[in-house]
Amino acid sequence: MSGPLRIAVVYPDLLGTYGDGGNGLILARRAEWRGHEVELLQAPSDGALPGADIYCLGGGEDGPQVRAARTLHDDGMLARRVAEGAVVLAVCAGYQIVGRSYPDARGDRHEGIGLLDISTVNGSGPRAVGEVVAETVEGAPRLPTLTGFENHGGHTTLAESAVPLARVTAGVGNGDGSGTEGALAGRVLGTYLHGPVLARNPALADLLLGWALDLGDLPPLDDGAALELRQERLGGVAGQARRRFRPRRRVH
């Protein structure tokens, strides 16, 4: 890689509902603190998507989600850059639209941009809203316990070429009965976790940075505040998880 590390927050006007813009900021700061030159780009939906090394997609409402998917598809840059090795972090609505298909509020099916081999439908039950704890699974990079907050009504199923990121120990995650959370294909990583996810999981941030910078190990940073937050969240959920997420129905 030559020149500065370019991080693009994709369509904050459409996919910025849940503070997920924070993920771009966190990646930028963590690279800068390690001496890398960084360009953090806010890429609104009325312009061409810029070329970047890392793309962050966040959560969004139903209407804007459809608009974002269509605009990304017509723009073409994201798929092109992914083919060239760019990193994608896609959260919630962003996670759904980088898949093959996703539903709108009425349940009508829309084409995604197909970076992940996943498909999402509307769940029949109440929305999944609450804290999530998940452990990365075999086939995905090994990371410390993942913590975040989910708020979605979609059930996401992974097809063959996508591997799950993690298995939930509290919360719902993909919600398709498999007990998994998130998906991964190459350098495209999708998840339902807000928080934003990188604020609570600095190791995940460094995984993405390592991919983008082609570096295996990154020098450690002062993550004292984040570690305290992780401890608090994981400690708080431990008690609550046993009550709320007693296995209801096992799907084999």
Partner: peptide, 25 residues
């Protein structure tokens, strides 16, 4: 205006002028 970028009436976008005006593009 961060929650109002998408036009609620159609599939378009709202564009905000410096003088306080706004319109669906």
């Amino acid at each position: 205006h961060l929650d109002a970028a998408g036009c609620p009436a159609c599939e378009g976008r709202i564009s905000f002028g410096g003088d306080g005006s706004w319109t669906c593009t």
